[in-house]
Amino acid sequence: MAESVYKVIELVGTSTESWEKAASAAVERAGESLRDLRIAEVVQLDMQINAGKVEAYRAKVKVSFKYEANS
């Protein structure tokens, strides 16, 4: 097997419903413009609060994809 290189970026997804949907939103959006996504790791969860109520769930996600140099 040939050697490979992967780039890792951090994204923050949001959802008004759950952390799971927030993380999924980040990965799905990344998949629209990045090829060959490999691993997603949730590294932080938090919530946006307004007037004592949760308005949004946020998930910080590290996503890796295969790095390909321009030819």
Rank of each mutant, 00 (worst) to 15 (best):
Q48I: 14
E32G: 06
K21C: 00
R58I: 06
Q48M: 11
Q48F: 12
A23P: 03
V61S: 04
M1F: 13
E3W: 02
A2I: 12
S33R: 08
V54Q: 04
S24T: 04
V8E: 07
V61Y: 03
K21H: 09
S71D: 09
E3C: 10
A51D: 11
S33M: 06
K62T: 00
A40V: 05
E3P: 04
K62E: 11
Y67N: 02
E17T: 14
T14K: 13
Y57S: 15
R38C: 07
G13P: 12
A56K: 11
W19G: 01
K53N: 13
E20I: 13
A56H: 15
V54R: 04
A30D: 01
Q44W: 11
S24P: 05
L11H: 00
F65G: 00
E55T: 14
V43W: 11
V12G: 07
L34E: 01
V5P: 04
F65N: 05
D46S: 14
R58H: 15
G31L: 06
K21Q: 09
R35Y: 03
R58T: 11
E32W: 03
V63I: 10
V27R: 12
V8A: 08
S4M: 08
V12S: 06
Q44S: 15
A51R: 14
R35D: 14
Q44I: 05
A69M: 06
Y57K: 12
L34M: 05
V8G: 02
D46W: 12
R38I: 05
E55G: 04
A23C: 04
